[in-house]
Simulated assay, not measured.
Amino acid sequence: MAGADRGASRCWWPSTTGPTSRCGSSRRCSGALLPEGAEQWEVLGEFQYATVALDPQTGRIYSFAEGEEFYIPMHQDVSSLVHTLTVVETGLAELKKLPRNDDQARAEAVEALRETITRLDETPFASEDGEWSRFFEEIALGMWG
């Protein structure tokens, strides 16, 4: 699992996040193990039950689930995040048009959304424990549309 690299340090998160929030040793700890240099990562915000941060050196985006010890790669870059958010927003609007009791149509629509996202970047669904995997499980169960 990610985050178990040598030289990893603990990430300390601010109690409130904002556009200038950074991981750093002087802030409240979430307990997530981070690689060397993570204190320069930008906190982008919250995603359901996780903090989302950008590594400005690589452009990669990571999630740090509440109560978990390790970080999980979320996107290869910001364009993937924007693409995913756009696909999800459009997809949820389309899902709302489906008959509520048509589980087959919902399952096919959710799978089509996943495929559209993974054509650009497989990272959002690379981990079953990732935020997008969990979110799409909830969509498939009808919780978001």
Results as ranks from 00 to 15, higher is better:
Glu138Tyr: 07
Asp77Gln: 12
Ala53Pro: 03
Thr90His: 14
Met1Ile: 01
Gln104Arg: 13
Leu33Val: 01
Glu122Phe: 02
Met74Glu: 13
Ala2Tyr: 07
Ala8Gln: 09
Glu122Tyr: 02
Gly31Tyr: 02
Ala65Asp: 10
Ala93Asn: 13
Arg134Cys: 12
Ser63Tyr: 00
Phe47Asp: 13
Phe64Glu: 08
Glu36Ser: 07
Phe135Trp: 03
Asp77Met: 02
Arg22Ile: 01
Thr90Val: 00
Ala2Met: 09
Ala32Asp: 11
Gly45Phe: 04
Gly145Pro: 13
Ala140Cys: 06
Thr84Cys: 09
Ala126His: 04
Asp55Thr: 00
Val43Gln: 08
Glu36Gly: 03
Ile61Leu: 12
Ala105Pro: 01
Met143Asp: 13
Glu137Lys: 14
Trp132Gln: 13
Leu92Val: 01
Ala140Trp: 04
Arg27Glu: 11
Leu81Tyr: 13
Glu138Asn: 14
Trp13Asp: 11
Trp132Asn: 13
Phe136Thr: 02
Asp5Tyr: 10
Arg114Thr: 08
Leu95Ala: 07
Val52Ser: 05
Gly145Met: 05
Trp41Phe: 03
Leu85Ile: 00
Gln76Asn: 15
Pro19Ser: 11
Asp55Pro: 03
Gln40Cys: 03
Gln48Ser: 04
Glu128Ile: 02
Ser63Asn: 08
Arg119Trp: 04
Gly37Lys: 00
Glu68Trp: 01
Glu46Gly: 09
Gln57His: 09
Glu137Arg: 14
Ala4Pro: 01
Ala2Gln: 14
Pro35Gln: 09
Leu85Gln: 14
Glu111Gly: 04
Pro73Ile: 02
Arg10Pro: 00
Pro19Tyr: 06
Gly24Cys: 08
Tyr71His: 12
Arg27Met: 10
Leu92Lys: 13
Ile117Thr: 05
Glu46Trp: 05
Trp41Ser: 07
Glu39Phe: 04
Ala50Arg: 00
Gln57Trp: 07
Val110Trp: 01
Gly18Ala: 06
Pro14Trp: 05
Gln48Arg: 03
His75Ala: 11
Ser79Gln: 15
Thr20Asn: 13
Ala109Met: 06
Gly67Ala: 13
Thr116Met: 05
Thr118Ile: 08
Trp13Arg: 11
Ala126Gly: 11
Glu131Pro: 07
Ala107Gly: 07
Val88Asn: 13
Glu42Cys: 07
Leu33Tyr: 06
Ala140Met: 08
Ser21Thr: 04
Asp77Val: 00
Glu138Asp: 15
